[in-house]
Simulated assay, not measured.
Amino acid sequence: MGKRALERRLSAVSDFADPQVELEQYPTPADLAAHLVHLADVHHDIAGKTIFDLGTGTGMLALGAATRDPERVLGIDRDASAIEQAGENEHRVAPETPVEWVVGDVPRAPFCISKTSSSAPSRTVLMNPPFGAQTGNEHADRAFLETTAAIADVSYSIHNEGSMSFVEAFAEDAGGEVTHAFRAELPLSRQFAFQRRQKKVLDAEVFRIEW
């Protein structure tokens, strides 16, 4: 299945029914998700691997990865209602590999996995973490990267525009390396009262990191 076909398949994923601004619950567009999953697949980072979608929301990245023959897929989010919606989206997308949905706080790493476990399949993180743009949620993306560095062999993550120096420095300090980076656009429809426009395009950056 090509990237365009995957994008069409992921278009069945519904957005947040009741998004929470404090959690920065903005949907990942199907076209960007398909591109990210396709890139990971081309680099042999999905098939036969354990995949984590940290802050999965309604499941877009986890469901995309689950169509690419992974060993296992886990979608983790602290919002139980979003996880319930992700499960409903799984029925719509019907991926070949079932997804394990977990309610948990990503910065607290709600799973027992270590990179020192040599017998387990290698681990890939796909994530669109909160950017840390909301008051009280500052540096949220750093917390997600800290969890990623502890469990992943490779990761793909979406960040706010201008994050290159921060992500590169973080990866280097954690013994990792940014191998790919590219710009992306996040078209956001009006979800919250403070948003003045019906639609806004947010500039973002995507990074592949080997840990």
Rank of each mutant, 00 (worst) to 15 (best):
A34P: 03
Q195W: 04
K49M: 14
N128E: 10
P70V: 10
D69R: 14
F52K: 03
K49H: 15
L74R: 07
L6N: 06
E84F: 02
S81G: 00
F166G: 00
A149Q: 01
E90C: 04
N89D: 04
V42T: 14
R72G: 00
P19H: 07
N160P: 00
H159F: 11
D15C: 02
T148D: 08
P95S: 08
I209S: 05
H159Q: 13
E88V: 02
A5T: 14
L145T: 09
H35A: 15
H35G: 12
V99Q: 07
V201R: 10
E88R: 14
I113Y: 10
Q198T: 08
T58S: 10
E7T: 14
S11R: 05
D77K: 06
A62S: 12
L126Q: 11
G57V: 04
A12C: 00
A171M: 01
D69K: 13
G59E: 05
E205S: 08
R68P: 02
T135L: 13
Q198K: 12
F144E: 08
E177Q: 11
G175H: 04
A174P: 02
A66Y: 00
M1T: 07
I209Y: 03
V154N: 01
L36M: 15
D18M: 06
F170N: 06
L126Y: 09
M1I: 10
P19E: 06
D79I: 09
S155N: 06
G162S: 11
L61H: 02
